[in-house]
Design a protein around this nucleic acid. Structure first.
Lengths: 212, 212
DNA sequence: TAATTACCTGACACTAGTGTCAAGATAAAA
DNA sequence: TTTTATCTTGACACTAGTGTCAGGTAATTA
């Protein structure tokens, strides 16, 4: 399997197909989340989805095909929060941090599946990392380097800055049990997430010497 | 399985036992790393270790028992980097960030297994999170709150600060394929890690208003 | 060096999971 | 309302993985 292409559905009007695929994908996401790719099973997914296993096989050749569909959707979501270069650093980075925190709040499952992929060596993301990801990175890097040259912020390695933002924001989704244990609550509230974004923005902007 | 206690070896002089357990654990760590807990198999571990499966069963009742041993060792490592309260914030936090970055460099496998545990809901860490972890957190929280009261740093939620440090430092181990892809190299060098620690310390200390 | 204890492993009897297929049921199009 | 394409599912024939045990071999200890 090599991401990028997928969704090679048997041509059809869809409808029943669409509904069932969605049920299967939802069940699969849960199973992958709990057990990881290797640990998840079509059997388990079928049971969770409440349909016979053979029916899952009717829509998806195998586990890889299901996972591929899920990963593809996650990637499109992940990429979409883009840094635009026309605004001031404070605005751009602030927006980006907020978007990332909200992503952790709204799509913790996606974040975790994505993280799991990296933890296990990202065997299915090689091409993605070499293509669209690399392009995106290079653009952002150039933008930030521009800011530094213009004296709009301290001389901070753009990549380390990005990694810091990613690590700090994704942490709330990926390490959720640790976070909630530390905070002594079952679940973070909307206000908690807002506060996280605010604090993080404050630390990082100030830490990079961005005043305005 | 409920962490905390383990290592209930059949009493013995050890030696052959010790050697073999170490071989098994090393192989198991790799297998867990690649496939996650559920995805790893005793069969796979035995093959990787180069011994018959029945021999693995001689030392370990089942997969849980192996995993338990590994997790226990990781936890002891993780806890050990402690924040001491007698020094100035700049020194304490700087040391802590450095220690965390170096942990990511030296023990990426441990970091990833630990992360995997959280991603999959941390079913085996519940007691840990409620006991030693919680105690540690509360102490550190008090220390940082003390610094804030003394005006040694900005009013930043201690927990959010900690999460930021964890997320940012662990990122280099847990998301290693993403990091290397972004940086365009196969592996981070010692200098890279030093630079990471330096940059991170700079951002976070300055970001929290710690000047000295 | 004999006796005891620790270690090793092939073989067995499972359970879990996979992928395919044929025959029927539903839905859509003609 | 046929006819045709889509969908459904039990059943089959696998492969992968588990845990135990008996009868050995190698180490230790007396």
């Amino acid at each position: 399997m090599t991401i990028i292409k997928s969704n090679e559905q048997k041509s059809s009007t869809g409808r029943v197909r669409k509904k069932n695929q969605s049920i299967i994908l939802k069940a699969a996401e849960q199973d992958f989340l709990e057990h990881g790719f290797k640990g998840a099973s079509i059997k388990g997914i079928a049971e969770r989805a409440g349909i016979p296993r053979a029916n899952v096989h009717y829509y998806y050749k195998n586990k890889e095909a299901i996972y591929s569909d899920i990963l593809l959707e996650i990637l499109s979501l992940w990429d979409s929060s883009i840094i635009t270069s026309n605004e001031e650093p404070a605005k751009v980075l602030g927006d980006y941090i907020l978007a990332k925190v909200m992503y952790s709040k709204t799509n913790p499952e996606a974040s975790r599946i994505f993280a799991g992929e990296f933890i296990h060596g990202a065997p299915r993301l090689k091409t993605y990392l070499e293509t669209s990801f690399k392009t995106w990175i290079d653009e952002v890097k150039a933008t930030i380097e521009g800011w530094i040259k213009q004296g709009k912020m301290d001389d901070v390695d753009p990549l380390y800055l990005l990694f810091t933002i990613w690590g700090a924001t994704q942490h709330y989704a990926d390490f959720s049990p640790q976070v909630t244990a530390a905070m002594g609550k079952d679940k973070l509230t909307d206000e908690d997430f807002e506060q996280v974004a605010k604090t993080l923005t404050q630390i990082i902007l100030k830490g990079c010497g961005i005043t305005k």
